[in-house]
Amino acid sequence: MAKIDQQHVWEMMEGINICMFITWDGSRQRARPMAAMPKQQEHAIYFFTSASAEKDDQIREFPIVTLAFVDQSENDYVSITGTAKLSDDRAKIEELWSPMMKSWWDGPNDADIRLIRFVPEDAEAWDSPHDVVSTIKMAAAAVGLGKPDMGDSGKVNM
């Protein structure tokens, strides 16, 4: 298992791809699954959104958001807090466009498509052994064979 550091957090995010994108509306948190496009070299994570999406108003008013990545098959978990900003950068939209986006927009020139650029500030990550290993370790601990080593975790400044 790798030590939890900034590089490892980026690798975990790249391997998971979908996260819960959590905003604040002034009275409650709101979460929705979104496809993340991590770009470590830009220190940013991008998301496509619609110009009229409710979360866009929330981002404009409360730009600090949280992303929660979960890969149950690998027992990997990453929670990242940072600042989100809306963009209509057509060149970047074109660069990030994939055929999968055709489910929501006509193409990268669709007038409704926008980008969210998320800049991570801090993260917490948990990189645990796979399910079978975890189960065996917990069973051994339950019968008095010591506390289980459940992998690596840590807080990381991004």
Results as ranks from 00 to 15, higher is better:
residue 1 M to Y: 07
residue 1 M to G: 11
residue 3 K to S: 08
residue 4 I to N: 02
residue 11 E to D: 07
residue 11 E to P: 01
residue 11 E to A: 08
residue 12 M to R: 02
residue 20 M to R: 14
residue 21 F to S: 03
residue 22 I to Y: 12
residue 24 W to F: 13
residue 25 D to L: 08
residue 25 D to I: 07
residue 27 S to K: 05
residue 27 S to R: 04
residue 38 P to L: 10
residue 38 P to F: 14
residue 39 K to D: 15
residue 43 H to F: 09
residue 43 H to E: 15
residue 45 I to M: 11
residue 45 I to V: 15
residue 48 F to E: 15
residue 49 T to V: 15
residue 52 S to F: 11
residue 52 S to H: 14
residue 55 K to I: 14
residue 58 Q to N: 15
residue 59 I to P: 09
residue 59 I to D: 14
residue 64 I to W: 13
residue 65 V to G: 01
residue 66 T to V: 08
residue 71 D to P: 04
residue 71 D to Y: 01
residue 71 D to C: 04
residue 72 Q to P: 06
residue 75 N to C: 10
residue 76 D to T: 03
residue 77 Y to E: 10
residue 79 S to R: 12
residue 81 T to D: 11
residue 82 G to K: 03
residue 83 T to L: 11
residue 84 A to G: 03
residue 84 A to L: 01
residue 85 K to D: 05
residue 85 K to I: 09
residue 88 D to K: 13
residue 89 D to A: 00
residue 91 A to E: 15
residue 92 K to A: 11
residue 93 I to E: 05
residue 93 I to Q: 05
residue 95 E to P: 00
residue 97 W to S: 02
residue 99 P to R: 08
residue 99 P to L: 09
residue 102 K to A: 08
residue 102 K to D: 04
residue 104 W to M: 05
residue 105 W to T: 04
residue 107 G to L: 07
residue 107 G to W: 10
residue 107 G to N: 15
residue 110 D to T: 00
residue 110 D to N: 00
residue 110 D to A: 03
residue 116 I to G: 00
residue 118 F to D: 08
residue 119 V to L: 04
residue 121 E to P: 08
residue 125 A to Q: 07
residue 129 P to G: 03
residue 130 H to S: 12
residue 130 H to W: 06
residue 130 H to E: 10
residue 131 D to Q: 13
residue 131 D to T: 12
residue 134 S to P: 04
residue 134 S to W: 03
residue 139 A to M: 06
residue 141 A to M: 11
residue 144 G to A: 05
residue 149 D to A: 06
residue 149 D to S: 04
residue 149 D to T: 02
residue 150 M to T: 01
residue 153 S to T: 11
residue 154 G to M: 01
residue 154 G to H: 01
residue 155 K to C: 03
residue 157 N to L: 09
residue 158 M to P: 01
residue 158 M to Y: 14
